[in-house]
Design a protein around this nucleic acid. Structure first.
Length: 407
DNA sequence: GGTCAACCTGG
DNA sequence: CAGGTTGAC
């Protein structure tokens, strides 16, 4: 039977691309509630579904390693048709910069784990993690404008924005209302298991693709999901899918990627179960709106506690006006990638990551105002010159092995 | 425009 | 109560 790939075990084909931990931290990115489907299946190994395929990812100090599993036979055609419909393979060729790939071909003909087709896989990863965006440079800019960010960011490096499939993103976040991460994960899991296509089986666990819009739109879906414990969200999910297909068409969500932010957000808000917060999540995490700032109760607290943001300090609840004011406040502070910056602070606020703050780690520059200015200037210049070259920086990244508690 | 309660379920 | 949305004042 097929097993989850482990880099230390061998017998599996792995490929890798250059990527430092300051550009990407898998543990933080895949466990902070941007996406609810990645699981740590081995020490530092994360397995999940992306682009209709099952992947295991892991990283070393300066490389991101990946293994892609073959889907079961008999599902491939359906799978391809579906991916085409979602258009998730588009816009991949933005990556001008070719990265060096280590391919270890494997001749072993074991049915499921052998990687046959490697074309496009690196591009899919670059697209999913948006690796063409230089995160270190963004961190530097945010830190310059915002001392509090600078403080937090010394520990929480490598938090970037995933570029998710819009359908998965929107419908996952419809599940988040009045809910917590641990339960959301279970719900999204159930959603895929009951309505998604099976992709492959590893160590007895079957991985499923996220359901298509047409699967979600079926009239029987509400009752089905209610039985699975989705509560009032069952109707939102089914009705939103139906609404999209009937009033717009299967490619509508994807098309919102080229619609201006506020216009796209308003469009999403016409769907049942989609308010400002859910619409902003979909905008930020799947529709290329880097300035969308989802404001939940946590971010509201952060705004008041850490930024003395006056907006809504008098209000009892998060009204639409307060919501917009807080978003504007952060956009003014952080600029066009405000949504990305917000996710760093959000992540740092999660209970499961609090341990990271207590560790001695490398919070050097923050408390070292006395550090020689010349050295700093030099470093800055160096970074500017080398542009996308990352400065290697060892970061203590001991995993927070805590119960699936959120906040 | 702001406030409030209801909505499902389980940690 | 929990990473919200809705409908009614």
């Amino acid at each position: 039977m097929a097993k989850h790939a482990m880099r230390s075990v061998g017998g599996t084909a792995w490929a890798s691309l250059a990527c430092t931990r300051s550009q990407l931290r898998l543990d933080l990115n895949l466990g902070c509630g941007q996406n609810f489907r990645w699981k740590e299946t081995g020490d530092g190994h994360w397995t999940g579904v992306m682009g209709g395929r099952v992947w295991t990812l892991t990283q070393t100090d300066d490389r991101l390693w990946y293994h892609v599993y073959n889907n079961k036979d008999g599902h491939k055609e359906e799978d391809n048709r579906k991916r085409k419909a979602c258009g998730s393979a588009q816009q991949l060729n933005k990556s001008e910069k070719r990265r060096k790939v280590n391919m270890k071909e494997e001749e072993n003909d074991e049915p499921v784990t052998v990687t046959v087709k490697k074309e496009g896989e690196e591009e899919m990863l670059v697209d999913y993690f948006q690796l063409n965006v230089n995160l270190e440079e963004l961190y530097r800019e945010w830190g310059l404008a915002d001392p509090h960010f600078k403080h937090i960011s010394n520990i929480f490096t490598g938090i970037r924005m995933l570029r998710q499939n819009p359908t998965e993103c929107l419908f996952s976040f419809i599940c988040t209302s009045n809910n917590h991460i641990s339960r959301i994960q279970g719900m999204v899991d159930n959603l895929c298991r009951s309505l998604g296509m099976p992709l492959c089986e590893l160590d007895g666990t079957t991985y499923y693709d996220f359901p298509s819009l047409s699967a979600l739109a079926d009239d029987k879906v509400e009752a089905l999901l209610r039985d699975l414990g989705f509560g009032y969200r069952a109707r939102f999910l089914q009705q939103s899918a139906k609404h999209i297909l009937e009033k717009h068409g299967p490619d509508w969500l994807q098309g919102l990627r080229s619609t201006p932010y506020l216009q796209a957000r308003d469009a999403l808000r016409s769907l049942p179960g989609v308010g400002l917060k859910v619409a902003d999540c979909a905008c930020l995490m799947s529709l290329d709106k880097a300035d969308a700032v989802p404001v939940d109760t946590h971010v509201w607290q952060i705004a008041k506690r850490d930024y003395k943001c006056a907006a809504g300090s008098a209000q009892k609840t998060l009204t639409d006006k307060v919501y917009r004011d807080i978003g504007d406040f952060f956009r003014q502070l952080w600029g066009p990638y405000a949504g990305w910056a917000q996710s760093v602070l959000f992540c740092a606020d999660l209970k499961k990551f609090q341990k990271l703050k207590e560790m001695p780690s490398v919070k050097l520059e923050d408390d070292k105002k006395a550090s020689p200015p010349i050295k700093k200037a030099k470093l800055k210049m160096k970074n500017k010159k080398l542009n996308k070259i990352e400065k290697p920086r060892s970061v203590c990244h001991k995993k927070a092995k805590l119960a699936p508690q959120d906040k």
